[in-house]
Write a protein that binds this DNA or RNA. Sequence first.
RNA 1: GCGCGAUUAGCUCAGCUGGAUAGAGCGCUGGCCUCCGGAGCCAGAGGUCACAGGUUCGAAUCCUGUAUCGCGUACCA
Length: 605
Amino acid sequence: MTLASALTALVNQAVDTAGFAGQAVPPVVPTNNPEHGDYQSNVALRLGRSLDEKIEAAGRIVASLPANDLIESCEVVKPGFINFRLSPVGMARTLEAAANSATNGVPQHGGTLVIDFSSPNIAKRFHVGHLRSTVIGDAIHRIYEACGWRVVADNHLGDWGTQFGKLIVAWNEWRDELAYEEDPIHEVQRLYQHFNQVADDEDAVIKAQCDEDALKEDVVAEMTRVAKELRLFPTWSDRAREETAKLQRGDPANIALWEKFVDASMREFDAIYARMGVEFDETLGESAYRNELQDLVDEWVAAGVAEESQGAIVIPFTKADGKGLSAPLLVRKRDGSALYGTTDLATIKHRMLSWAPDRIVYVVDSRQQGHFRQVFAAAKKLGYDRLSNGGEREPVHFEHAWFGTLRFADGAIASTRAGATANLVDVLDQAVGRARAVVEQKSDHLPEDEKAAIAEIVGVGTVKYFDLRQNPQSDITFDWDESLALNGNTAVYLMYAHARCRSILRNAERDVPVSGIVVSHALERELVLALNRLREVVWESAETYRPNLVADQLYTIASVLARFWNDCRVLGSDEEGSRLALVRATADSMRFGLGLLGIDAPERM
RNA sequence: GCGCGAUUAGCUCAGCUGGAUAGAGCGCUGGCCUCCGGAGCCAGAGGUCACAGGUUCGAAUCCUGUAUCGCGUACCA
């Protein structure tokens, strides 16, 4: 039970006994200014029209509050705010209960969540661009589990698309076997980029030749006409499509190449996931569904949901299907091959039947909003949102938890030259290197292996926190110095707060349980409230898919703690027992909260 | 053209089912270690919350319009 929920329950009762039964009661929230007390309820503002009525309603609610030892005092202010000041015993007791509970005092909600995140494309290096989905998705995974949900984390690899056709063409055309031996994924990526370059150049030539008016009529026909005229037929893109189709038909040579490319990428991905502490319950890439795709599309056609259009098969939409669905969802190309919309639908079917989830969440960047809108609408038309192994069920809730683009501050970094340095491995290495330098400077006395371990935790944590502390939906700018900074609002600040607590607990030389906390000093009060608030914020963070809410609260705790050290002596003070317990609760909370973000916290640093 | 999103301090960003005097980091100015860890703390300067209307006790937050920017717009993912 958090303070907010306990207070909300009290207000609910009071609202009923005051004669407002049946009214919607907004939850009690923290005040934004300590002068107004610790928490406030704004119910009364909705219970009257005039100022007098609101004040009067507030007064009646206050008078109707059940007896309790949580509220020390409360007052009705201006337009009808009800401000609560909490009793020291009440808040201390609440914190102790939270700290000693198996769930860390986080309110528990039931449910099953399937979360689709990271999902890198095979044949591309793991780039900083993949950082966001991976880190945000992993945090959401952990946060939901903390709320008592069963979570299925699925890495939906991009391992079955047209990029393989491109790669196969490029491999057959331009491969450098020696380079592949040395660094497989590097060579694969080179081939992929080279192909795109050549195909783009060709496209540009064709477009330049096209008749604008004809283009509007029928793009494909016009492009084909020009390509033929230029004797480019088949174009590089045509050849890639052909190889893709062959692969999807099970051509042994292409399958063998495909396996080769997938294997090279997976080795790199696995290493990165291990280093970042990211785990999945499933790694079912697009290819996992390859054998069902053709039958599924036929089924959708038979059901009347999908239909032929311009030689392809699409799922069309009407206004009744929702807004922003101007184009149909393409599920089979003219040449018979499948697209990612097809695999996405097959994936939904599989997830519904395997896990019976309440929610399916996709942590994918904002540019795919249109795509997911289509996929979700198509899934509903197909009845996939209610699919079950037997019996009725509520429709699953689909969510595209999109995130903004990561950009580079410095144009030079985003350039080809520096493109290589934006590999995630390089970013992590750079971060760990910088952390190592600081460890050498500040904690040279520690043993070598511990210094290395600390640098790794700090470096990886810094990169993760840089992303997680920002609102996922904002576009974020990656700047080496700012993103890898080790002071200010960074992972280090949080880790340091934890390490200092641990240091004091070590110096105490005894086991310190979280009990006997007496809140007297103003900073003790602030700290206890901040620690309680962490529990309140977790579900809000889960519901809105915003790990930055947790990050924010951790920062608040750490900054209160930094002031606490100045004013409140722990060891040897009259309040030693209580303060040690508080320090213990803080250390545990920081470790717990950082854990929600997938960030480790060293004992000392 | 249509759709989605954004616009808050010099810079990078919080603040989101409407709440009280709009916050943080970086940078800048000035202070603070005889004391459990200074990877820190305190104070200060810095704002027309893009603009114009609207809704109401109350708007950075909701609605409408405008401007600017970004992204998307069927045979890539």
